[in-house]
Design a protein around this nucleic acid. Sequence first.
RNA 1: GGUGGGGUUCCCGAGUGGUCAAAGGGAACAGACUGUAAAUCUGUCGGCGACGCCUUCGAAGGUUCAAAUCCUUCCCCCACCA
Length: 420
Amino acid sequence: MAHSELTTDLKQELKRQIEIFKRGTVDLLPEDELRAKLAGFLKGERGPLRVKQGFDPTSPDIHLGHTVGIRKLKQFQDLGHQVVLIVGDYTAMVGDPSGQSATRPVLSYDQIMKNSETYQEQFFKILDKDKTEVLFNGDWFKKMEFLDIMHLASKYTVARLLERDDFTKRMKAMTPISVHELFYPLMQAYDSVAMKSDIELGATEQTFNLLAGRTVQEAYGDEPQCVLTMPILVGTDGVKKMSKSLGNYIGVDEAPREMFGKAMSIPDEQIASYFELATEVTAERVEEIRKQLSQADVNPMLLKKELGEVIVDQYHPEGSGKAAREEFERVFSKKQLPDDMPEATAEDLKNLEIDPNAIYLVHLIAKNKMSKSNSEARKLIQAGSVSIDGDKVTDPNYEFPLDKEMILKVGKRRFLRLKV
RNA sequence: GGUGGGGUUCCCGAGUGGUCAAAGGGAACAGACUGUAAAUCUGUCGGCGACGCCUUCGAAGGUUCAAAUCCUUCCCCCACCA
């Protein structure tokens, strides 16, 4: 291959792109290889970079944790590179052991396919659909024969598989590791072979799997991919990685009100990190926010409200963020009523086997799903968290007729408008 | 295959015949406070129209006035040995 020199213009472009690639990431390895690939593209000696990221559709929704990588992919896309999403329909059935302290439950294929549909819809809230290649890794794994699998397995050693942290920890903790889990990194690595990856993105905990891709690509005679790792977004609990199963996530498909509320529930220390990883605000603005947060006279709440607004606006029509904020302030700060709430008419109550002339409050709450059980409803009443038209009710045996429109409030967030 | 250890309520984890709906921690929910669904403190935390009753401690049987605790069989996990 002839190695023509880059012109000054191209050198600048190379530098610019590498800078964008690296912004907000943890590691780019090996950087010189990526430079070489990118230089090849800029000189027209090869096509755009094939940028890979895989997602296992293990739950129906993607959340802000996923978007950290997707946002980075978008940047690649905007620079003219080819983004390739790998939907891990097969890998989902194995379950990624990364960061797991136990074997994941195995999902049914049907469930996985359903999930992958909603995944795709949600991806394209950020990525440009027309410029994105979507591949299912079942397409190649389905065709493999046992010997092919053995061939793949021979490219990697047990020692290397076991040396990864997750397995080491599980061995020490004496929690089981199934043989199929050892295959996970090999499968992910083989994806890179199958779709000819130039660079693969993943969270830092993915480093092992990403690097396995390099080894396996080389074993198959291909140029190894580069690896770009992203920081892990902490969940709304402020401690653990954001994940659906931990319930500490903000889903991209959630209603503005929920999104905003969840954003407000993150610990103050996570504000800057959320701005950096989960929003499009500039690096300069993130720096500014960091500074403001370190000042004693700045109320973190205001920045958090800004965060909530920005996040909501990213996934909903213009102005939704502002509306969600106003709603939040009305309901929580001023303790007023939300602008809309679920309703129940006398007819609805009858359908729930509640007599509108003698409503037993405990049943009203439980049957309208405002509590998990009658017992819980009873306890909430006794705890003083239930009110009707603003008047606290503490008698667990309270009964009343539906003679006018009234508003039931349970806790801070659950409302029900009762209509005659 | 052998030997030893283990499976407890959403999670982690105490409990070895009655005083156990089961310590403690976490999560969750609520209350107070607050400029926040942050933080902090407090309470609740199987179900039931409820000072009582019903269902839970891997599964199924059994012993006993009484079992998470004892016995039998089975299922699953871990370690070491092979």
